[in-house]
Design a protein around this nucleic acid. Structure first.
Ligand SMILES: [Mn+2]
Ligand SMILES: [Mn+2]
Ligand SMILES: [Zn+2]
Ligand SMILES: [Zn+2]
Lengths: 151, 151
DNA sequence: TTGACAAATAGGAATGGTTCTTATATGGTT
DNA sequence: AACCATATAAGAACCATTCCTATTTGTCAA
């Protein structure tokens, strides 16, 4: 009883946050939005919009892909979901093979190189190294560049 | 693909590496390939395939986008260019707002969460903090997951 | 130096993901 | 209950990427 109460409570609280954040941002609570959020919080695989769409269409057969996509973007804008770092844009190529890290502007998509010894020397955690073969290890900072900050 | 360890920053030496690495991998040296590599090493902005195409078409007016795109992918395969971490796939959504980090499988695109105190506590470097507003700071590991490693 | 051939290219079509447009429907408020 | 700003469905448009195929070209061995 107690063991899955925790999970329920957790999800319940997430739903509460969803309702409050939506209200605070003047967003209507629609059956589609609620269903999409529920589907998202029970996913464990960082799903794409299309993944969510394919799952949710079983419950709401006439929902449109556009609604799922738009709603997920809305969730990221009101801070109840994140887009996994870097995804969703065209590939970007880097001829510099030296170890370095990137700052990425969320607004203008500029990618700025920086070097940092502490970051270079990070160890891959033991438990990760056991299971997986990490071929690259990078710190990614995301935010606003100086130009975009000014506005 | 044959890799080796020499990493050069001088443009002339980078070209030499390009020629040798191409030969080592049985790739023909074509005017298109050479021009694309030259264009890439003088770019300072982590260009997309389309960016490179738009620049290079001024020098080789009848080059095709497909050649530019395919060639840049080839460069990343033989280790003379990198694709900036994470780019180039569909957006992936994450309902977990707690601080955590990601391991991404380069083969099957699985994204695996992991937690790590040392990573969480990394400081944004002073010079970065002066110039930019960093809103997120994540460590990204890329490599092969246990499933894909087996093959 | 030349000829054969595997590899690479151009160009266009196909695919996949995302965003836009517009007519209709609806949640939240009065 | 009625209103209206917002949200939705459906499909078109758009953009990045990959695939297809006829033609060309770099490489290498003769
Ligand atoms: Mn870089
Ligand atoms: Mn995650
Ligand atoms: Zn910017
Ligand atoms: Zn994998």
């Amino acid at each position: 009883m107690v063991y899955n109460m925790d999970i329920k409570t957790d999800k319940g609280e997430m739903m509460a946050v969803f309702f409050r954040r939506s209200r605070d941002n003047g967003l209507k609570i629609t059956p589609q939005r609620s269903a999409i959020y529920q589907e998202l919080i029970q996913a464990k695989d960082h799903p794409s919009a299309d993944d969510v769409y394919k799952r949710i269409i079983k419950k709401i057969p006439n929902i449109s892909f556009d609604t799922v996509n738009r709603t997920l973007l809305t969730f990221s804008k009101i801070g109840i979901a994140n887009i996994v770092e870097g995804y969703g844009q065209a590939k970007r190529y880097d001829p510099d093979l030296e170890t370095h890290h990137h700052f990425r502007c969320m607004k203008c998509n500029t990618i700025i190189d920086f070097h940092n010894k502490e970051y270079d020397n990070l160890k891959v955690p033991e438990d990760m190294r056991k299971q997986f073969t990490a071929m690259s290890k990078k710190v990614v900072l995301e935010g606003l560049c100086s130009k975009c900050k000014r506005r």
